[in-house]
Design a protein around this nucleic acid. Structure first.
Length: 580
RNA sequence: GCGCCCGUAGCUCAGUAGGAUAGAGCAUCGGAUUCCUAAUCCGGGGGCCACAGGUUCGAAUCCUGUCGGGCGCACCA
């Protein structure tokens, strides 16, 4: 296919060409900045198919008033065969009405490109590393992890769709004190498996039953060899085994959501490989790390045991942080930040851009890690694009009442339970119908039973309806032979579907997968509305037994709507069902 | 005290890198089912876009401040 440019991109290019022509004519100064120029459908469809603000944005540079400039632009655009009308409105908007033929070409393009419709080379093949989930390997996934998991995965899918090479990565925090606690908890379950009466799980250990199988497996394999042994003899082994078991569990949980990471980066291995030392050396060399005394915490209650100690500090204040951050503890071990810093340096070696998806409870550490990557950029003399996206908390409700979550008592709501109750598609889609930086509520009751309240069914229903119509049509297949028979109703549907490529592009640039979800809702609504017109007026039904030509053309439109829905849902990782 | 996020219809949320008369679902009221799937559609009512200033041709959107909600503020992870 020679011309894979989508309709919207094509017209944006045409307007750009007009502006070039105006520069040659002298109507515009050379090298005008066109950064603010947009070409998009107007909010009010009665204004036309496309609108551009070019005249308003460029008027100042051209030292003229917007309407005068608009007239010159319109004069050029009027010569384009695909533009049947170009008019000036309001303060200087230029509204364009396109020839039906332009839309029909786009409709054929959807059919020709199929699953690739909406794909672009926006990403230019650059690599993006997305780190998401990265839950501590101390238990199963719970609902708190769910949103970041889905948002990260959908973003990964979106960026792949626009031509990035994406690495889905999970950072396994298997080096901190919490995994020692995990190992001790597993040891207790191991003794239990050997027949010992362990009683209540002591405060400070993980109480969940999910550690029982780990203890049993260890008992099976090692008998009572470590039952009475001192901790030093078994801690490392138990830690390794328990973490491995937890990661298997987490992988299984993620699989329930259709999520699969390509890379699991181990903090312990990172440390064993001496990466933090390398990072520290490099940072000291570039004067980003120095030995200094940490300020006392500024919070309301300074710790009683606070005493000033000299530690290696990273100069995060140079990049906007409130204070410099220690990379090592006074015992010589690495702080979480110290290891994370080295981890990000490692990631930056392998990717052109980095994205982290974090829970809002880590908001306080964003500045320091951004500072770390900024320092790396500065030291290397090349900027590393780095984005930390914070995903806000999800409040779980049932019948409007908050669901109690207590990690300590082990009564948290697991992801597996939720997926089992409401289904993968509902979980994913619900998480994607809110912008991630706003808090959200997730009400089991609403999300399962009141399907009207649940946009995913609405969307899947639209797709299923189209599939059903195809089945019903029997011998009559979608055909592009008589598209000239289509009327304004079908063209309106085509216009809506044709927005897909620019919605995808906008969502990718803004890194906001939820825009896809909302677009699909609009498209489904347009289809349902179209469908129901056939209820009131049989002449408007897709299947017209007396008119196979028209039926074929309408089926063709419907098929492309379904295609776009499939493509959109595919990005979001939600299934497009054929029957409901 | 400080930092980050949020504040849009009764409720849950959109609002397309500043655009034209601020939208959708739920709820509410009124309609459509001898018909390709009514899990749908059509229509009505419902708004000081938290508040106050500012930036400009133009602000829900950007800036400052105030108020309100959430998260965080160890050498933890």
């Amino acid at each position: 296919m020679a011309d894979t440019q989508t309709l919207h991109a094509g017209f944006a290019a045409k307007i750009d060409a007009v502006l070039n022509a105006l520069e040659l004519e002298g109507a515009l100064p050379k090298d005008t900045s066109r950064s603010g120029v947009t070409v998009e459908p107007p909010r009010d469809p009665s204004h036309g198919d496309l609108a551009t603000n070019a005249a308003m944005v460029l008027a100042k540079q051209a030292k003229t008033n917007p309407r005068v400039l608009a007239e010159k632009i319109v004069d050029h655009l009027g010569r384009e065969p695909d533009i049947v009308e170009a008019s000036i409105a309001g303060p200087g908007f230029i509204n364009l009405r396109l020839a039906d033929d332009a839309w029909l070409r786009e409709l054929r393009a959807i059919a020709a490109l199929g699953a690739d419709y909406g794909r672009s080379q926006l990403g230019e093949g650059t690599t993006v590393n997305i780190e998401y989930v990265s839950a501590n390997p101390t238990g199963p996934m719970h609902m708190g992890h769910c949103r970041g998991a889905v948002v990260g995965d959908a973003l990964a899918g979106l960026l792949e769709f626009v031509g990035h090479k994406v690495t889905r990565e999970y950072y396994v925090n298997d080096a901190g004190g919490q995994v020692d606690v995990l190992a001790r908890s597993a040891h207790l379950r191991y003794r239990e498996a050997l027949g010992e009466e362990i009683g209540a799980i002591p405060e400070g250990l993980y109480p969940g039953d999910y550690l029982k199988p780990v203890g049993e497996a260890l008992a099976q394999e090692y008998g009572d060899a470590y039952a009475a042994a001192p901790e030093a003899e078994w801690l490392a082994l138990f830690r390794k085994r328990a973490v491995a078991a937890m990661m298997d569990m987490i992988r299984a949980d993620l699989a329930l959501l259709g999520i699969e990471h390509a890379v699991f980066a181990s903090e312990a291995e990172l440390q064993a490989a001496g990466k933090p030392e390398d990072a520290e050396a490099w940072l000291r060399q570039h004067d980003f790390v120095y030995d200094g005394v940490l300020e006392a915490p500024k919070g309301k209650a300074p710790p009683e045991d606070w005493e000033p100690v000299e530690l290696p500090l990273f100069r995060s204040t140079r990049f906007g942080d409130d204070q410099d951050r220690p990379i090592r503890k006074s015992n010589g071990g690495w702080t979480y930040f110290g290891a994370d810093l080295a981890y990000h340096m490692q990631k930056a070696e392998k990717a052109d851009a980095l994205i982290d998806i974090w829970g809002a409870d880590h908001a306080g550490t964003v500045k320091r890690i951004k500072a770390a990557v900024a320092a790396l950029s500065e030291g290397q003399g090349a900027a590393i694009p780095f984005d930390v996206k914070l995903v806000q908390m999800v409040n779980l409700l049932r019948d409007g009442e908050p669901v109690k979550m207590s990690k300590r008592s082990g009564t948290f709501v697991t992801l597996a339970e939720v997926v089992e109750e409401v289904g993968k598609d509902v979980v994913r889609f619900t998480m994607l119908t809110r912008k991630p930086e706003a808090q959200m509520e997730f009400d089991f009751t609403k999300v399962v039973e009141a399907s009207r309240d649940n946009p995913v069914f609405y969307l899947q229903y639209a797709h299923a309806r189209i599939c059903s119509t195809m089945r019903k049509a029997g011998d009559v297949a979608p055909a592009a032979d008589h598209l000239d028979r289509l009327s304004a109703d079908e063209l309106a549907l085509v216009r809506e579907a044709a927005q897909f490529p620019r919605v995808v592009e906008g969502a990718a640039k803004a890194r906001e997968p939820h825009r896809i979800a909302f677009f699909l809702g609009d498209l489904a609504a347009a289809f349902h509305s179209f469908w129901n017109a056939g209820n009131d007026d049989p002449a408007k039904r897709i299947i017209r037994e007396d008119d196979p030509e028209l039926t074929g053309a309408r089926l063709f439109v419907a098929a492309q709507v379904a295609q776009v829905i499939r493509n959109g849902l595919g990005i979001l990782g939600v299934e497009a069902v054929e029957e409901m």
